[in-house]
Design a protein around this nucleic acid. Structure first.
Length: 684
DNA sequence: CTAGGGTTAG
């Protein structure tokens, strides 16, 4: 039988903490009560309070503290530190004031906790009070205390106070410099962070991985690719490449600076990777629009048995949203539930966003209502989902609800972009204009280029093409690609070649590499019978060496994705596809379908034009879907270009003939076809 | 026995 001395019992409490076992902790606590008489030695009480508080068992921690008559600053600090560590910042401040009420002086361990809690709660008024206390007994001169006070002033936006404190610090260490650099980046002053790093090296400071990450953040913030590369060399030379955090910082930096190849190189050469490394690699792909690769890295991480974290899950959901990958998205949603992170507000918002972007608006709504906590991003994701569907009424209702509900959120720039684009897609012209006119007064938001683009789109789409042009010439901003693009699209839709030429010329100047604009202009001329001009545009396109981007449609069947181009006959089941197309064409003709050859690209004989539009990629993908997807299951097709008018009307007919639900997500919005009708009510 | 700066996300 080993004898249980107070010291060995304290060691047992510590081992409960280090193994994060509340079960062991409670058992040891029971043993302590059995072995020793009340009151317990105060150092043992301190250990217990510390253990309970750090394990996020605040009620037990409070209880032990209140049963400790000889509690000291150490007891209280243990309690407060645990609250801070577990994100209970308001409790921490309450405990701090309770301690003051007992006339116990905070020490150099207590102040940093109190500053961190005030900083995290963004409560400068409280922070200032704590600061005054620290000044009064001279503790502010301590590096720990001074540094955390400085961090608090930065995070609460009191720049002048932060500056004074920093300049008057009697002693600075690496933590001070790291805090300075990180906060400079957060404050949008990456140059200052870089300067601080140089100064730090000059005073002979030895940087650590946190310093490196702060510097890399400054570089990615300002797109300083070269300085970041130089730091990469410095990291290698100082032997810090083995440090996982430093390497993770490099992956993130290269990803944000559009050099995802270097991210991959760093990632591949790491001998130790953690969950952050994997997640950083996923987001590096994501930031470079490589959604498929992001998903591949995620699947590889799963194979290697990496724990799925809330960060990883929200990142992968965003990849699914970009791919319109409903099936993978659903399985990641299930994984989020399994990993117990679906209550996280980031994850929840990503789920709402994913379902919205994949066109499953009811799933998005359900996820939205089931979230325990919602913020502005959640609301924007939901409104964005309605915008994708062209549900202006719902977008407007949610704009109302977000300000009047219990979530306490205020609409921002993005919210208004979503609402206006919902109006434009639904043809709610008056409503859209009214919101645009009143956004400054009602929401305090200054209209920006995206809002202007929505209005040009709104007017143009509803046929007021001249008014759209007049609008954009009157506003003070420089029209962007999106704005000219919206105008060009409207000109194509309503047959306005003269205005279309103006829009296209501006687009050619802003975005010379995009072939799509040439194609649209050529089609616009072709539809107006101006064949010479159409040919000229195509020749010019060849002349400057732009090839038409490949238009394609894809459909996922039993975990496999099948991609089709126009006139595609390369699929292994081509003969069945052709037979299905033949059968459909016959039945459609009987049902009264007339091909719309406005959308043929060349000046061909009528018969050839019909054939040209008949073999658009979405029709081929649909035929494949009809022969492979069992009846009753909705067919979902994704297309990288806008759906053409002929395909739109053809798919309406087909949905009626075959009695199935068909969804097409083009690069702009969703179309849900059912019983011969489309959810967009032919307005798009 | 108690403490400060940080890497990944919607």
């Amino acid at each position: 039988m080993i004898s249980l001395t107070p010291n060995s019992l304290a060691a047992l409490v510590e081992s409960a903490l280090s193994t994060r076992s509340s079960f062991l902790g409670r058992a040891v606590h029971a043993q302590i009560i059995k072995t020793l008489n009340n009151p317990l030695p105060s150092f043992l009480s301190n250990h217990l309070v510390n253990m309970y508080s750090k394990l996020d068992l605040p009620i037990s921690a409070q209880l032990v503290l209140s049963l400790t008559p000889s509690r000291s600053v150490v007891t209280w600090t243990a309690l407060i530190a645990g609250s801070v560590q577990n994100g209970r910042f308001a409790s921490a401040l309450l405990q701090f004031s309770n301690m003051l009420r007992e006339r116990i002086q905070p020490n150099d361990f207590t102040f940093p906790c109190a500053f961190k809690a005030s900083a995290s709660l963004r409560m400068p008024a409280i922070g200032k009070q704590v600061h005054a206390l620290a000044v009064k007994d001279g503790q502010i001169r301590d590096v720990f205390v001074g540094c955390s006070a400085f961090d608090m002033y930065c995070k609460t936006g009191l720049r002048d106070e932060a500056r004074i404190l920093f300049d008057e610090m009697p002693e600075k260490n690496i933590v001070t410099w790291n805090a300075y650099m990180s906060n400079a980046v957060l404050d949008g002053q990456p140059r200052n962070a870089v300067k601080a790093f140089i100064e730090f090296l000059r005073v002979d400071g030895k940087p650590d991985s946190i310093t490196f990450c702060a510097f890399l953040n400054a570089c990615s913030d300002a797109l300083y690719l070269e300085p970041g590369r130089q730091l990469h060399g410095f990291i290698i030379r100082s032997g810090f490449l083995a440090d996982v955090s430093a390497s993770n910082g490099l992956i993130d930096f290269y990803g944000k600076c559009r050099d995802v190849g270097s991210s991959e190189m760093v990632f591949d050469r790491m001998c130790q990777r953690n969950d952050v490394s994997w997640c950083s690699m996923v987001t590096a792909h994501l930031q470079n629009y490589e959604e498929e690769k992001a998903c591949m890295v995620f699947l590889q991480a799963r194979e290697e048995g990496v724990e799925p974290t809330d960060y990883m899950i929200s990142s992968v959901l965003s990849a699914c949203a970009g791919l319109s990958g409903l099936e993978l998205g659903r399985s990641v949603h299930a994984l989020a539930v399994k990993a117990c992170v679906e209550g996280n507000v980031f994850v929840g918002s990503a789920i709402v966003d994913m379902y919205g972007k994949c066109g499953s608006i009811h799933d998005a709504e359900q996820a939205f209502y089931e979230m325990p906590e919602r913020n502005l991003i959640t609301w924007n994701a939901m409104i964005g989902g309605y915008a994708h569907q062209g549900h202006a009424d719902m977008a407007l209702a949610f704009l109302q609800d977000m300000t009047s509900g219990s979530d306490d959120v205020v609409p921002n720039y993005v919210t208004l972009v979503c609402v206006l684009s919902a109006c434009s897609r639904a043809g709610a012209v008056e409503m859209g204009l009214e919101i645009f006119e009143s956004m400054r007064a009602r929401f305090g938001i200054e209209p920006g280029v995206e809002h202007y683009a929505c209005i040009v789109d709104l007017l143009g789409r509803s046929g007021m093409v001249e008014r759209a042009y007049e609008f954009l010439t009157k506003v003070r901003i420089r029209p962007t690609i999106a704005i000219w693009g919206a105008l060009l699209g409207a000109c194509r839709m309503y047959g306005k070649p003269e205005l279309g030429k103006i829009a296209a010329d501006n687009l050619f100047e802003l975005d010379p590499k995009d072939s799509g604009n040439h194609v649209v202009l050529s089609n616009l001329f072709a539809a107006a019978g101006m064949w010479e001009e159409a040919t000229l545009v195509r020749k010019e396109m060849k002349h400057v060496g732009i090839k038409k981007g490949v238009g394609c449609s894809w459909i996922s069947v039993k975990n496999g994705v099948h991609v089709f181009q126009a006139k595609d006959t390369s699929h292994e089941r081509n003969s069945e596809i052709q037979a299905m197309l033949y059968k459909l064409r016959k039945e459609m003709k009987e049902a009264g379908y007339v091909p719309d050859t406005d959308f043929a690209l060349y000046d061909l004989e009528e018969e050839e034009k019909i054939s040209e539009v008949w073999y658009h990629s979405e029709k081929i993908a649909l035929a494949y879907g009809l022969i492979t997807i069992p009846p009753g299951v909705p067919i979902r097709i994704t297309k990288n270009l806008r759906i053409c008018g002929d395909c739109h009307s053809a798919i309406k007919f087909i949905s009626g003939i075959v009695g199935r639900e068909i969804t097409v997500r083009d690069n702009n919005r969703f179309h849900r076809f059912r019983d011969g009708q489309c959810s967009c009510r032919d307005y798009w």
